[in-house]
């Protein structure tokens, strides 16, 4: 099977590896796992004025899981919260041409995005209500 250079590149040189401090302002953390295969994914976003200015991830798992999270963080940067909500696992599958056996990796990435957004929202709501 032929893969685009971009995909192989995500696989070999994943972008945005690392992490932010959890309690840093504007940071949302999504922590998800795939109980079928034991993969663990932590995806973080840094938000300023409703805009995702940076994203980082740490993934323990197979190449597809790493490529999926790498791609997800690339896509997240520069998107608004609302736009980020629209990222679907099928977009990742299509971009990376993931085979059926690896689709759960893209699901994991989507779940991680959702969880990070929810965590940010929760923290933001908390701060707002505390400020009131």
């Amino acid at each position: 099977m032929a893969y685009s250079d971009k995909v192989v590149d995500h696989f070999n040189n994943p972008r945005n590896m690392g992490s932010f401090k959890k309690d840093e302002e504007g940071v949302g953390t999504g922590m998800v796992g795939a109980p079928e295969c034991g993969d663990v994914m932590k995806l973080q976003i840094k938000v300023q004025n409703d805009m995702i200015v940076d994203a980082k991830f740490k993934t323990f798992g197979c190449g597809s899981a790493i490529a999926s999270s790498s791609l997800a963080t690339e896509w997240l940067k520069g998107k608004t919260i609302e736009e980020a909500q629209k990222i679907k696992n099928t977009d990742i599958v299509q971009e990376l041409n993931l085979p059926p056996v690896k689709i759960h990796c893209s699901v994991l990435a989507e779940d991680a995005i959702k969880a990070a957004l929810a965590d940010y929202q929760k923290k933001a709501d908390g701060t707002t209500s505390a400020a009131k």
Partner: peptide
């Protein structure tokens, strides 16, 4: 059972590593 199994899988995969 689901929870214990999942946690076991995570622990097992890091042990393998």
């Amino acid at each position: 059972m689901r929870e214990t199994l999942s946690n076991r899988t995570y622990v097992k995969s890091i042990i393998n590593d």
